[in-house]
Design a protein around this nucleic acid. Structure first.
Length: 226
DNA sequence: GCGACAG
DNA sequence: ATCTTGTCGC
């Protein structure tokens, strides 16, 4: 089977094949110097997309490198198989970076997935980089609402497993869903997301990547072909 | 069987 | 994801 499946059955098998390769424990870099944000935007009609990666200096939160890749969605949108849709373009964008980020912050879940292999796990395994997932809405699991203050969190539980954390990144603002992707502990992932979401609900990494891929589709940028 | 369902 | 108006609040 290929890395890019053409059917649901095949996609499920790819996940089963790659899942054992994910390291869901490793502490990961305690104080990474750089962190990458990844995001994808779709053109009206959804037949075209732009994937963006921005690399930020962890301390200053300034963008130090970035890349984009445009293309077609590689798979229909199927909850649980979402990664196959955006992965090719995201990997292409990553290839265009001139630096190698120390951690990947993905727009979607990692372990918090019905088969424990969401986009963040997939990207981590395919790049062998520490990766974490930050979702805006849940895919699996149950949780108690975390405290109202920034930094408060509660475990995200699916069945008998803790698959992530529901983290409040700003006072009184809807929480985000953090889960491990690859080579990173849940505690360190939580700490990193909180540091990156210093001012807004979402981490700066995803905010900068989001702006970049949108601007690319809008045509606001000169060099943005793929 | 029916609804839910990352982006 | 994308399509959309007004509205509340710093």
């Amino acid at each position: 089977m290929s890395a890019q499946p053409t059917s649901v059955a095949e996609a499920l098998r790819v996940q089963d094949l790659l899942r054992p390769l994910a390291d869901l424990v490793g502490p990961g870099p305690v104080a990474p110097a750089t962190v990458a944000g990844l995001d994808v935007a779709y053109a009206e009609g959804g037949d075209r997309l732009a994937a963006a990666v921005t690399v930020l200096d962890t301390r200053t939160l300034r963008v130090v490198d970035q890349a984009v890749a445009t293309g077609r969605p590689a798979f229909d949108y199927v909850p649980g198989l979402f990664a196959f849709r955006e992965l090719p373009a995201l990997l292409a964008a990553l290839d265009r970076l001139t630096t190698r980020p120390e951690v990947l912050v993905c727009d979607g879940h990692g372990l918090a997935h019905p088969r424990r292999f969401g986009l963040a796990c997939h990207l981590g395994v395919r790049t062998d980089l520490p990766a974490i997932g930050v979702g805006k809405t849940p895919l699996v699991g149950v949780w108690e609402p975390p405290g109202e203050r920034r930094g408060a969190w509660s475990p995200l539980v699916d069945g008998t497993e803790t698959v992530g954390r529901v983290l409040r990144t700003q006072d009184g603002v809807k929480p985000v869903f953090v889960s491990v992707g690859h080579r990173m502990s849940l505690a360190n992932a939580t700490e990193l997301v909180l540091a990156l979401a210093s001012r807004y609900r979402l981490p700066e990494t995803t905010r900068t990547a989001d702006r970049l891929c949108r601007a690319t589709l809008t045509g606001a940028s000169p060099a943005a072909r793929g």
